[in-house]
């Protein structure tokens, strides 16, 4: 079943009269201007939805009634009703939004404006920009601490993580990381911050109490030159004991023990793996493979790839909808 948003209302009504949908993985296709929706039960694409230009970061609100989409080349964050696939409105986002995080208050989106060296804070209710904060060149990775007090922006060319106080909107620390940071996450109840560096080939682990470097994760795959092992997106199991790290053009996902920071496994996936999302029960992991235009489904228990699903051109972001 392939639904385009251009379909008539009656057809849409008919389609959604079908039984309630199963859990889904939503994927943004950067060079198709679409989202692909994968049914987790059948592992098939059940909907393809047209959105703004060059969609990258996507995230749901806390009750999954809204999907936010960074439409980078439309210079907008789009707000979608995921039931109907209808774009409800755009949010002012600043130029070239690439990636964002939704604050735990469910109300403030913190957006990295890649072309502008700015992080923009948008109130999704008033639809207004609350603040813009100057950060380094090409901001990308965004993370929010579990207590909501700190937001991180990483900047790709400046090679820093910027630590922003969410009350004052001021940067209170800047920490250097290896070349071209891409993604950031708070780990272990917010006691650690992890930042991946694509060209540096590492993940830097920070102690969030004093922003000091607490460790570094290195990767090594037999037969792959170190320059091609490029950590980008990563996701953690709910107990935060294991991290899955997408390694870009090495076409592998690393499995990292978060206590020892040792890599336990490398899983072969599609070409230039970007980001990931778990199924709601965390038994499966879905990776977006930009160059091969598909999604690899990994069985989390056995750490084996089990299926490849064709999606649109250059899949980038991924989000789960239970």
């Amino acid at each position: 079943m392939l639904l385009k948003t251009k379909m008539s209302a009656s057809l849409l009504a008919l389609a959604f009269a079908l039984p309630a949908t199963a859990s889904e993985i939503w994927v943004s296709n950067e060079k198709d201007d679409t989202l692909s929706v994968i049914d987790i039960d059948t592992l098939e694409v059940v909907r393809t939805i047209e959105v703004g230009e060059r969609p990258r970061g996507i995230t749901f609100n806390s009750d999954f009634t809204r999907l936010y989409i960074c439409a980078s080349d439309s210079d907008a964050v789009q707000v979608m009703d995921p039931e109907t696939g209808e774009i409800l409105h755009d949010l002012p986002s600043g130029e070239d939004p690439e990636q964002f995080v939704l604050h735990p208050d469910d109300r403030h989106l913190w957006i990295a404006n890649e072309d502008d060296a700015v992080t923009t804070v948008v109130d999704v209710e008033t639809r207004k920009v609350v603040a813009q904060i100057n950060v380094g060149i090409e901001p990308e990775g965004m993370a929010v601490s579990p207590d909501g007090k700190t937001v991180i922006t990483t900047s790709e060319t400046t090679n820093m993580a910027h630590w922003i106080n969410t009350e004052t909107h001021e940067i209170y620390a800047n920490t250097l990381v290896d070349a071209r940071p891409r993604h950031a996450e708070f780990v272990k109840d917010g006691s650690e911050l992890w930042v991946s560096s694509e060209i540096g080939g590492t993940i830097t682990v920070f102690d969030t109490v004093d922003q000091s470097e607490a460790g570094k994760i290195h990767f090594e795959i037999q037969g792959v030159h170190p320059d091609l092992i490029q950590p980008v997106g990563f996701e953690l199991t709910p107990d935060h004991k294991t991290a899955f790290v997408a390694l870009g053009p090495s076409n592998h996902v690393a499995v990292v023990n978060t206590e020892t920071l040792a890599v336990e496994d490398y899983i072969l996936v599609g070409r230039r793996v970007w980001h990931m999302a778990f199924s709601p029960d965390y038994s499966q992991l879905f990776t977006t493979n930009g160059v091969s235009g598909d999604v690899t489904v990994i069985d989390v228990a056995s750490r084996k790839p089990v299926k490849t699903i064709k999606v649109g051109r250059f899949p980038w972001g991924a989000a789960v909808r239970p």
Binding site: P92, D116, V118, A131, I133, N134, E170, I171, N174
Partner: peptide, 21 residues
């Protein structure tokens, strides 16, 4: 100190970045 006021309706934020060194 830099001030960014690209969009009319938002608050301009002046940032004094914390120095690493």
């Amino acid at each position: 100190i830099r001030t960014w006021c690209a969009i009319g309706f938002m608050a301009c934020v002046s940032v004094m970045p914390a120095d690493l060194r």
